[in-house]
């Protein structure tokens, strides 16, 4: 068993699951019905991606590992998602901006994974790419709408940008398990920058300058948020161990 590879797959799966978990907090509470449905749809795509990846990782790990044991029975220090996805959903500006940052990253990453020598990973990337293309468009449109909307929406988006920008650097800092996986984060970075800058410009926002970037999530050193996310998400599996649901 190639531990680096399974860590890599878990990292990808954790990103999707934790962001899905965060976005799902909007379900039934969105600003308008159409957008409640849209964010929930994105949530469903993310959970679906996570499931495909966990199922694949479970098949590599064997020994009774399942998608659920990976999602529900690992601890805070074992989750390998980047810090960006675990940040609170906060307001709509934070949610759509975070989605835009993440989906744009995921879009270029999936494109690289398309030609991954592992056919299973390539297939998951291909399926995800169709969804992610829509996520980028939807979230990008919202960023522009809020930035170029009212004074209040612009102000809120600017606050979201200040809060979230320091978590974008980690996306491009490779963890040890990311090397040799056939993806190249340094090649994604300029593409990501270009797309993000174009959208932020259209949103009439000031681009953040050089700033300190947080990291740690990819190696299991998280913000304090993750423990609460897991406490809630894993509650049933922890309370009733070994049950079928």
């Amino acid at each position: 068993m190639n531990q680096k590879k399974t860590s890599y797959i878990l990292h990808l799966a954790d990103n999707s699951l934790i962001l899905g978990q965060r976005n799902s907090e909007w379900c039934g509470h969105g600003p308008v019905l159409e957008q409640d449905i849209a964010i929930t749809n994105i949530t469903l795509d993310l959970v679906g991606q996570a499931r495909s990846l966990y199922q694949y990782a479970a098949s590599l790990l064997g020994e009774g590992t399942t998608e659920d044991s990976l999602a529900y029975l690992r601890t805070e220090r074992e989750f390998l998602n980047c810090l960006l996805v675990e940040q609170p959903k906060a307001d709509w500006a934070h949610t759509v901006l975070r989605q835009f940052f993440f989906s744009t990253y995921q879009y270029y990453l999936c494109q690289q994974l398309l030609s991954h020598p592992d056919a299973q990973l390539a297939a998951i990337a291909e399926k995800s790419l169709k969804e992610v293309r829509y996520h980028v468009r939807w979230s990008g449109e919202w960023v522009i709408r809020l930035g170029d909307g009212t004074t209040e929406s612009k102000q809120r988006l600017q606050l979201a940008l200040a809060a979230l920008w320091p978590y974008t650097g980690e996306l491009f800092m490779p963890a040890a398990y990311e090397s040799g996986q056939g993806t190249d984060l340094s090649a994604i970075r300029p593409l990501w920058n270009e797309k993000v800058q174009a959208v932020l410009r259209e949103a009439t926002l000031d681009l953040p300058g050089e700033t300190f970037m947080h990291s740690g999530g990819k190696t299991g050193v998280h913000t304090e948020h993750l423990g609460f996310i897991l406490a809630e998400m894993q509650y049933m599996q922890r309370t009733y161990p070994g049950c079928e649901w």
Partner: peptide, 26 residues
């Protein structure tokens, strides 16, 4: 119960269901 659904399969089913309810409302 979405954030606390006991398995990933149940979580996905529940999200899809609640989303359908939103669609019905629409």
């Amino acid at each position: 119960w979405i954030t606390r659904a006991p398995s990933l399969k149940r979580k996905a089913i529940l999200i899809a269901k609640v989303q359908d309810e939103g669609g019905h409302g629409l």
